[in-house]
Amino acid sequence: MSHEPHSPPPIEAAAGGHAHAAVHPAGDQPLVGHLVPMTTLVVTACALLVLTCITVAVRYMDIGEFNIYIALGIAVIKASLVALFFMHLRWDRPFNMIVFFGCVLFVVLMMGFCLMDTSQYRHEQINGNPPLVAETLLQNAPNAPVGRFDQ
């Protein structure tokens, strides 16, 4: 926050070391913002499609626990590609990047704490249904897998 400029900068809006739009009052150059070449966009899209194919392929490999980590890893890479190139985050103001990754961090924080909590009492949970509940199940959906209180 504190490294942000105090007053609005002149016309060159986007921060970062990349080529900036020059000042042109009219015509085919933007007044503000950052130009991304079309090739970059197309290459990004192709990379995303290839990664999609890879992640589908991984699904059919049996590598136990690692399946979800690989799938999530690929998803994170894809999401980063979208954010950095499609959403121009690579050339955008750093604070926008902070906002975005900050909020992801908070989701991770919430997820981490909730998982820590629920996995703590997972083994203490009653395995099966109390008799009356089991009876309700049998009443209403005889085909449902019915648990029974088997403490």
Partner: peptide, 21 residues
């Protein structure tokens, strides 16, 4: 403020570990 919410749940069946944290 984002990492203290569990103190509302000390008696709600929250795990002992999270209660402590």
């Amino acid at each position: 403020s984002f990492i203290v919410w569990g103190h509302h749940m000390f008696t709600s069946g929250q795990s002992a570990l999270m209660n402590t944290i």
